[in-house]
Simulated scan of single mutants.
Amino acid sequence: MEKPYVRFGIIGAGTIADFHAEAIRSVPDARLAAVCDTDAERAAAFARKHGIECHTDLADFLARAPIDAVTVATPTGLHGAVAIPAARAGKHVLCEKPLDVTAEKSQAIIDACKEAGVLLVPVFQYRFGGGAIRLKRAIEAGRFGRLLHLSGRIKWWRSQDYYDSGAWRGTWALDGGGCLMNQSIHTIDLMLHFGGRPEQVFGYTATRTHTGIEVEDCACAVLRFASGAMGVIESSTACAPGFPARIEVSGERGTAALEGDALTEWRFADTDAGDEAILAGIGEKKLGSGASDPKAINVEGHRLQIADMTRAILAGGQPAIDGAEAKIPVELICGIYTSMQTGRPYIFAR
Score class of each variant (00 low, 15 high):
Phe194Pro: 00
Leu150Cys: 10
Thr171Met: 04
Ser151Tyr: 00
Gly170Trp: 08
Asn182Ile: 14
Trp172Leu: 12
Ser159Phe: 04
Leu192Trp: 06
Trp156His: 14
Gln183Trp: 10
Tyr162Arg: 08
Leu147Tyr: 03
Asp175Gln: 12
Lys155Ala: 13
Ala173Lys: 15
Leu150Arg: 06
Leu147Asp: 03
Trp172Gln: 05
Leu174Asp: 11
Tyr162Gly: 08
Met191Tyr: 01
Gly195Asp: 02
Leu150Lys: 02
Trp156Ala: 14
His186Leu: 12
Tyr162Met: 09
Ser165Pro: 09
Ile188Phe: 06
Thr187Ile: 12
Leu192Lys: 07
Leu150Phe: 00
Cys179Ser: 14
Asn182Ser: 14
Gln183Ala: 15
Trp172Met: 11
Asp161Gly: 15
Thr171Lys: 02
Arg153Phe: 02
Gly178Thr: 03
Trp156Pro: 00
His149Gln: 13
Asp164Gln: 14
Gly166Asp: 15
Ile154Ala: 14
Trp157Leu: 13
Trp168Arg: 07
Gly152Arg: 06
Gln160Leu: 07
Ser184Phe: 05
Arg158Thr: 00
Gly176Ile: 06
Leu192Gly: 03
Leu150Ile: 15
Leu190Ile: 13
Arg153Asp: 09
His186Val: 11
Gly152Trp: 01
Gly170Gln: 04
Thr187Lys: 05
Leu190Arg: 00
Lys155Val: 01
Ser165Ala: 15
Leu148Ile: 13
Met181Gly: 04
Ser165Phe: 11
Ile185His: 08
Ile185Val: 15
Leu147Thr: 03
Asp164Ala: 15
Gly166Leu: 08
Leu174Asn: 12
Leu148Glu: 15
Gly178Pro: 11
Ser159Asn: 07
Thr171Gln: 07
Trp156Arg: 13
Ala173Met: 12
Asp164Ser: 13
Arg153Cys: 08
Trp157Met: 10
Thr171Arg: 06
Asn182Gln: 14
Trp172Ser: 00
Cys179Pro: 02
His186Cys: 09
Arg158Pro: 05
His193Phe: 13
Ile185Thr: 13
Cys179Arg: 03
Leu150Tyr: 04
Trp156Val: 06
Asn182Pro: 00
Leu150Trp: 05
Asn182Val: 15
Gly195Pro: 04
Gly170Arg: 10
Trp172Tyr: 14
His193Asn: 11
Arg169Val: 06
Trp157Gly: 03
Arg153Leu: 01
Ser159Val: 02
Leu174Trp: 12
Ser159Cys: 04
Gly166Tyr: 11
Gly178Ser: 12
Met181Trp: 02
Lys155Cys: 06
Leu180Asp: 08
His186Glu: 09
Met181His: 14
Met191Ile: 05
Gln183Lys: 14
Gly178Asp: 03
Leu150Ser: 01
Trp156Ser: 14
Met181Ser: 13
Ile185Gly: 02
Gly177Ala: 02
Ile154Trp: 10
Trp156Thr: 11
Ser165Thr: 05
Ser151Leu: 08
Ser159Gly: 04
Ala167Gln: 12
Ala167Thr: 12
Gln160Asn: 07
His149Gly: 01
Trp172Ile: 07
Trp157Arg: 09
Leu192Gln: 05
Gln160Met: 11
Gly170Tyr: 04
Phe194Val: 06
Ile188Glu: 05
Ser165Leu: 10
Asp164Trp: 06
Met181Thr: 12
Asp164Arg: 15
Met181Gln: 14
Ser184Val: 02
Leu148His: 10
Trp168Pro: 05
Ile188Thr: 07
Leu192Tyr: 05
Cys179Val: 07
Trp172Thr: 05
Trp157Ile: 07
Leu147His: 01
Ala167Asn: 04
Phe194Gln: 01
His149Cys: 07
Arg169Tyr: 02
Met181Glu: 09
Arg153Thr: 14
Lys155Trp: 08
Leu148Asn: 10
Cys179Ile: 09
Ser165Gln: 11
